[in-house]
């Protein structure tokens, strides 16, 4: 795979909901291509039959008892909201989809 061709920056911006200025794009494109070219060396490794490792130390069944904790004044967790009204967080109009 030619990584430089395969990187569609605009699509990545959409997936990551991140706007980039044109000059940022100009810089980032080649940098990403180079990094991806570098990480492609992993293709050399024979991984047949190797289990993927998702956790540094494997544990199982880490479960919590179903108990309700005491509630804290809701403002405690709303105080950092840039905009709120009637104890709800305000966002610019969202088109239902």
């Amino acid at each position: 795979m030619n990584s430089e061709e395969s990187i569609d920056l605009d699509r990545l911006c959409v997936l990551a909901r991140l706007s980039l200025e044109p000059e940022e794009k100009e810089k980032l494109g080649p940098q990403l291509a180079r990094i991806i070219g570098y990480v492609e060396q992993l293709k050399e490794v024979d991984v047949d039959g190797v289990e993927p490792m998702a956790h540094a130390i494997p544990l199982e069944n880490v479960l919590r008892k179903d108990e309700a904790a005491e509630l804290v004044d809701r403002e405690t967790y709303l105080r950092n909201a840039p905009d709120s009204r009637a104890h709800q967080v305000v966002v610019p109009p969202v088109i239902e989809g």
Binding site: A69, L71, V72, Y77, L78, V89
Partner: peptide, 21 residues
């Protein structure tokens, strides 16, 4: 009695944002 990943209760029809952590 509590939410999926934290011990906050869930009940229908409570005051907005009263069931948060």
């Amino acid at each position: 009695a509590s939410k999926m990943f934290t011990s906050v209760p869930y009940r229908f029809g409570e005051e907005p944002n009263s069931l948060i952590d």
